[in-house]
Every structure is written in C-alpha cells, then in structure tokens.
C-alpha cells in the first residue's frame, strides 16, 4: 500500500495475544494517536453517491 502512495504509518500491524489486554490497549491508543496526527485519508476515498 505504501508503494502506491498511502502514507507510511497509515497501515500498522501488531501481534497481540488474547492474554495481553494491556498491550492491546496500548497498541490501540498508539495507533489512534498516530493516525490522528496524519489527519484524514486523502486518497482511496470514494465519494458517496448523491441522492437527489
């Protein structure tokens, strides 16, 4: 995805075991923060069909 122009960091992977609840919370918070910092996605967004 990055190769075709989606910003680095927009897509993230993590490995969290079902027993690692604290890690899960940490990852979610970190991802949310870093994506917020990137701002809204500019590309790969489809305009909604107009309903007249």
């Amino acid at each position: 995805m990055e190769h075709m122009g989606i910003e680095p960091g927009r897509i993230q992977f993590s490995w969290v075991s079902s027993a690692e609840s604290t890690k899960f919370v940490k990852v979610v918070n970190e991802v949310t923060e870093s994506i917020k910092a990137l701002g809204p996605l500019k590309h790969f967004v489809k305009a909604k069909a107009k309903v007249v």
């Binding site: 990055e2 190769h3 075709m4 122009g5 989606i6 910003e7 680095p8 590309h43």
Partner: peptide, 14 residues
C-alpha cells in the same frame, strides 16, 4: 525509481 518517490508522488505515478 518508484520507491524513491515520496508518498504523494507515488500516488500520482499510479
């Protein structure tokens, strides 16, 4: 060559 571009230029290339 494509890898060397920045994200916006990559997008534009494709």
């Amino acid at each position: 060559k494509i890898e060397a571009l920045n994200a916006e230029d990559k997008w534009q290339y494709f």
